[in-house]
Simulated assay, not measured.
Amino acid sequence: MPVPPGERPRLTVPTRDGPILVEGPVEVVLNDGTTVTSDRFMVAVCACRRSRTYPWCDTSHRRRARE
């Protein structure tokens, strides 16, 4: 999807062994089709699927060994 004229693209920052930081606000569409939103200025989206608050990161990747 192209960025509308006069707007800049959202900043996304993948982190090593951690979440993807996304400049908010954001909407995330889950596999079952439901949509979750966050109005925070920066959102940590879970990339490892270990979070108990998925799709938001709760830092579970720090406590659990990767299989």
Rank of each mutant, 00 (worst) to 15 (best):
P2K: 13
D39P: 04
S38D: 00
C57I: 02
R62C: 02
A47Q: 15
R63V: 08
H61L: 01
T59S: 14
G6L: 09
V22L: 05
E27K: 10
P14A: 03
R63L: 15
V36S: 09
V36R: 09
R66G: 11
T34R: 12
T53V: 08
D39F: 08
E27R: 09
R64I: 15
T37V: 12
M1T: 08
C48V: 03
G18L: 04
E23D: 03
T53G: 06
V43L: 02
V29K: 12
G24E: 08
P25D: 02
P2I: 09
W56A: 07
G33D: 13
V26Y: 08
R8H: 12
R49T: 04
D39I: 01
R66T: 14
P9N: 08
R50T: 00
R62L: 15
R8K: 15
T12Y: 07
R49S: 13
R52G: 13
V22S: 05
A65Q: 11
T35Y: 06
P9Q: 10
G33K: 10
E27V: 02
I20A: 12
R10N: 02
V28K: 05
V36T: 11
R10F: 06
S60H: 13
D32T: 02
W56M: 09
H61A: 05
R63H: 11
G24R: 07
P55H: 06
W56R: 05
E7P: 02
V26W: 01
C57L: 14
V29N: 12
P2C: 06
V43C: 13
L30N: 12
L21Q: 01
R40E: 15
M42Y: 01
R66P: 00
R52W: 02
V26R: 02
T35K: 12
C57P: 04
R40Q: 14
F41N: 02
L11Q: 13
T37D: 11
P14N: 10
Y54G: 03
G24M: 08
R50Y: 14
V3M: 10
L11F: 00
R52Y: 06
E7C: 04
T35C: 11
P5T: 00
G6V: 02
T37M: 09
R16H: 10
P2A: 14
T53F: 07
P4I: 01
T37Q: 15
A44D: 01
L11M: 09
V45R: 00
V13F: 13
T12R: 13
D39Q: 11
V22M: 10
G33M: 13
R52L: 15
G33R: 00
V36N: 06
V45T: 01
H61E: 11
C48P: 08
T15A: 12
V29P: 03
T53A: 14
H61S: 01
T15N: 11
V36P: 00
D32H: 08
